[in-house]
Simulated assay, not measured.
Amino acid sequence: MIRVLIVDDEALVRTGLRMILEAADDIEVVAEAGNGAEAVAAVARHRPHVVLMDVQMPGMDGVTALQEINRSPNPPKVVMLTTFDRDEHIYGALRARAAGFLLKDTAPRDLIAAVRTTDDGSAVLSPTVTKRIVDTFADQHSPDTRAAGKRLAALTERERQVARAVARGLANAEIARELGMTETTVKAHISRSLTKLGLTNRVQIALLVRDAG
């Protein structure tokens, strides 16, 4: 059973998420929290496997809570819920190594699938979300182009081709068709690239590619 903590300052949102998740036989909502401080305490008390947490909350926001949670022993995977209207929070969550991002209007079926995927250890980042994040932050910081390029030089040419496709927001199936490889091979290239670059998700790869120009 996948143990889930829901964190959002709106009770109606928490109730809706609970109803969706508890319709799945393999998911149990073990607790709810209304702000970041409550979330940190609930993680210690209930030991969830996955946390769904709003980025924007009064008091301790989601990014600060994520940082606190990641300092705990054996921290759960934290997926940030967002509407993308406060972009600086998303960038902070990326740097704090969020396990993924979901839009608040994610379909129920996709929400359940995302929780399962996160529990399995994979990042929840749809190509659409990846592209939106990259496009949003492309002009919000001054990249060190030379340093980014040097990091990408650690990749093989094929891995760099895949990385560039990821930065364009292409799904694995689209990358496979464009580069003439299987989806399994695309996933393998991405996985190896993450390891070589010391990154945790495809959004970070995309941002690095954009930084490198």
Score class of each variant (00 low, 15 high):
169 G>I: 14
179 L>F: 01
191 S>R: 14
167 A>W: 15
176 A>S: 13
174 E>G: 02
177 R>P: 00
167 A>H: 10
190 I>N: 04
156 T>G: 11
158 R>I: 15
169 G>C: 12
150 K>N: 11
185 T>A: 15
176 A>E: 11
147 A>I: 01
176 A>Q: 07
144 D>T: 02
175 I>Y: 03
170 L>D: 12
147 A>C: 01
182 T>S: 14
146 R>L: 04
192 R>A: 05
194 L>K: 09
185 T>D: 02
168 R>A: 15
182 T>N: 06
155 L>E: 13
165 A>P: 04
185 T>K: 07
144 D>H: 08
194 L>I: 07
136 T>K: 08
157 E>Y: 02
167 A>V: 14
193 S>G: 11
147 A>Q: 03
138 A>R: 02
165 A>Y: 07
171 A>C: 06
157 E>N: 06
169 G>K: 06
172 N>I: 10
156 T>L: 05
135 D>L: 15
161 Q>E: 14
149 G>I: 04
176 A>H: 09
138 A>W: 02
174 E>Y: 04
161 Q>L: 15
162 V>E: 03
193 S>V: 04
145 T>R: 15
192 R>V: 02
164 R>H: 12
163 A>G: 09
137 F>H: 15
147 A>K: 15
146 R>W: 02
170 L>Q: 11
172 N>T: 11
174 E>S: 07
171 A>P: 13
167 A>Q: 13
188 A>F: 07
145 T>L: 07
174 E>N: 00
170 L>H: 12
192 R>F: 00
156 T>R: 09
135 D>T: 05
164 R>L: 07
162 V>F: 03
160 R>A: 07
137 F>P: 03
145 T>W: 04
173 A>E: 06
168 R>G: 12
160 R>P: 09
175 I>V: 15
174 E>P: 01
182 T>H: 09
166 V>Q: 03
181 M>Q: 06
139 D>S: 10
139 D>C: 04
172 N>C: 08
189 H>P: 04
185 T>P: 01
148 A>R: 14
138 A>P: 03
136 T>M: 13
155 L>W: 05
137 F>N: 04
141 H>W: 06
182 T>P: 01
147 A>S: 14
187 K>L: 13
195 T>A: 12
162 V>I: 03
167 A>T: 12
152 L>C: 14
163 A>W: 10
140 Q>L: 15
174 E>K: 06
193 S>Y: 01
170 L>G: 00
149 G>P: 01
154 A>D: 09
194 L>D: 01
159 E>I: 01
195 T>R: 14
192 R>Q: 02
176 A>P: 06
145 T>V: 10
135 D>S: 10
176 A>R: 06
149 G>H: 03
189 H>S: 08
195 T>H: 12
191 S>W: 10
152 L>V: 12
137 F>A: 06
187 K>V: 13
141 H>F: 15
156 T>E: 08
159 E>S: 14
164 R>I: 05
137 F>M: 09
189 H>W: 00
151 R>Y: 03
151 R>W: 03
173 A>H: 07
